[in-house]
Each structure stands twice: as structure tokens, then as C-alpha cells.
Design a protein around this nucleic acid. Sequence first.
DNA 1: CATAAAAATAGACGTGTGTCTATGAGTCCG
DNA 2: CGGACTCATAGACACACGTCTATTTTTATG
Lengths: 97, 97
Amino acid sequence: MPTQEAKALAHRLKAVADPVRLRILSILLSHAEGEACVCDITDAFDLVGPTISHHLRVLREAGLVTSERRGSWVYHRATEDGTALYDHLVRVPAALT
Amino acid sequence: MPTQEAKALAHRLKAVADPVRLRILSILLSHAEGEACVCDITDAFDLVGPTISHHLRVLREAGLVTSERRGSWVYHRATEDGTALYDHLVRVPAALT
DNA sequence: CATAAAAATAGACGTGTGTCTATGAGTCCG
DNA sequence: CGGACTCATAGACACACGTCTATTTTTATG
């Protein structure tokens, strides 16, 4: 594997190599309409709002999540890449043993 | 995704979410007999021996690599899980875009 | 307009991570 | 034995990361 490719893949893997971010992706995908606001996500964790915002930004900068403001709320949803990566990961046999 | 499962998956992902460790796995899998000693691996990087040892330990503790001493050399090889995870990862479409 | 609510940003703080140098442990060979 | 070689471990150090509190921005509403 070329150094360049390893670097790019590692960068994307780092974005999902965190239990909170994995669960955020999971929540987005299982939510109605495939989207949720920060307050929805915060309820599922014992974490404060800004911390969730931080994780959402990491996911967004990795191209796995998009965010859109509609009125008072900001709705976050998994991108096509984010969905594909998540679906792929939860099916890694070795990763679940 | 349950918290427990997210934690376990994230832990395993952290082990491969590093460009050096990805390339180490790649090198092990492409080497003759599927194994290589530290000196073989060191040649492929601009890193010193103990650093490679450190990365090999991370991979070993994640169950992705095994190490066996035969004479002066220690031979490292990807486990079945390590092989499956690596093969799986390099085929994630979203991870390579 | 003023206030409240939702969320992002900024900054601080402790912990984890990747790297190095120095040292120790195991093995071969003269 | 003793030296050379391979590798792991220990310790140090800088930097990244996950979390929090405090503040700012954006929007809705009385």
C-alpha cells in the first residue's frame, strides 16, 4: 500500500475510530428521515452539547456527515460515503469477534 | 449500536487508523510466506526500530498480528482477523475516494 | 427591541499517542 | 566467555485528542 493511500485511509478511519462518533452515525442512520439535531443526539449520551458538536465536526470534515440549518435547529445526516462506510464497518467479521 | 459494541469496534479501528500500521499490515501480507522480521519492515520506513516494535505491539494487542521468535529473528505475520480486516478495509469504496 | 433557545466556537485542561534515545534481553559465533 | 546482532522495553518529550465551561452567533417569539 502506497504511503499516500495509507495516509488517506488512516485519516478517514480515525474519524470513525471513536465510540461516540460510531454511535452518532448509528443514531443518524436509524433516525426518522435519516437526520437529527444536536439535542436529539445529546440525549443519547452523557456528554454536553459542545462535545457532540465537536464530534459532528470531525465527521463533517471527513465527509461522513452534512449539516443544514432549518429554523432554530441544525439537522445532521450521514452522507452517502458516511452511510457506506458505517454499513461496511458493522459487517467486518473480524471487528466484531 | 450499543455502547459496548461501539467501544469494541472503535478499539479495533484505532489499531488500524494509522498510516504506519496500515502499511505494516500491507507489508506482512505481501511478503514471502506472509511474514517478515522487524528489520524488513524498518527498511520500508523512515522510522527507527523501537518505533516499529511499538506499532507491532499495538497490532498484536488488537489481535491482528502474531509474533514468533526463530533464532535471532522475530517473525511477524498477520492473523486471520488481521488479514480479514485489512482486506475488508482496502475495499471500502468510501474510504478511498 | 428584548429575551430565550439552539448550536457553534474558543479556550483550558488532563490524557493518549507517536516518536526518539538509552538500555536490557535473547541468540549466534569465534 | 565475549562480542556482535536483533529486537523489546523503559523513559522522555511534543503533539493530538476528548472533554468541559464560557462566550458568541443565529433564529424565533413575546
